[in-house]
């Protein structure tokens, strides 16, 4: 049983929304995303050297750190919220190790989060954090990439808790004009072997891109587009984007 897995309801494509913690009024943003229909919320933990992120999320992390965001501060903020959607932390390994895997896991649970996604912690290095999270009944959500061979993808999926995050494009986070042609095939293969739901992200920015993935994945993740919209056009525009994405996935 996992609150994260349960957020992916059979026959319906879940909407997973990312917000960079500490970039603007995070409490208001998380509440607005939740009310606008997000099924799962990823709370971004800013890092000084985010190697898996494109320019939009890099700049958002720089703004957040410049404004004084800290891991503990963001988890304190999350603890005070009462959201409908389950929340999962998404951040790089060094701040997590710096706090200590067990302290991090405990702090996540106390803040009411359901798990973590760590893009620079591949399968071979993930054991200690996966165990620390499991001890708190939390999920470590692994990533599978377009370059991952099928056998390895199956191994990763079997280790997954909560859901598997399929990286749609070979590259860093950020909007793409087009998604790979074989994306639906790859999603089909992964869903066939995965015991947990499969969400697809990286590069999905527009409602029509999300619509094309309706039914092809258990969930669709939108990050960069939401962060950019929130930063450039404000809270209302971000909420509107979430609503339009939710509508096309209905």
């Amino acid at each position: 049983m996992s609150r994260l897995s349960d957020a992916f309801v059979k026959g319906r494509t879940a909407l997973v929304c990312y917000a960079m913690g500490g970039d603007g009024d995070t409490a208001a943003l998380l509440q607005a995303i939740d009310e606008a229909g997000a099924d799962v919320i990823e709370l971004g933990l800013p890092f000084s050297d985010p190697i898996a992120d494109g320019p939009v999320l890099q700049e958002a992390a720089t703004r957040a750190l410049g404004a004084g965001a800290t891991l503990r501060g963001l988890l304190d903020l999350a603890r005070g919220l009462r959201l409908r959607a389950p929340m999962v932390a998404m951040g790089y390994v060094n701040p997590i190790e710096s706090m200590g895997a067990q302290s991090f896991a405990r702090a996540l649970r106390e803040a009411g989060l359901c798990g973590a996604i760590v893009p620079d912690l591949p399968f071979e290095e993930a054991g200690p954090l996966r165990d620390a999270l499991a001890a708190e009944r939390l999920d470590l959500v692994p990533l599978v990439a377009p370059t991952t061979p099928a056998a390895r993808a199956a191994t990763i999926a079997r280790s997954a808790r909560g859901f598997v995050y399929y990286v749609s494009v070979t590259g860093v986070t950020g909007s793409r004009a087009a998604l790979p042609e074989d994306l639906q095939n790859r999603l089909g293969e992964l869903r066939a072997v995965s015991p947990v739901p499969v969400a697809v992200g990286f590069g999905i920015s527009r409602p029509e891109q999300a619509a094309a993935l309706k039914g092809k994945a258990d969930g669709v993740v939108v990050g960069t587009a939401l962060v950019a919209t929130h930063h450039e056009k404000g809270l209302q525009a971000a909420a509107d984007l979430v609503r339009s994405l939710r509508a096309v996935l209905q």
Partner: peptide, 18 residues
């Protein structure tokens, strides 16, 4: 695992592991 003592390893996005 590519370690010298406790140091080293592979802390990169999954895309690069292959």
């Amino acid at each position: 695992r590519g370690r010298f003592g406790q140091y080293g390893g592979r802390f990169v996005p999954e895309t690069l592991i292959p």
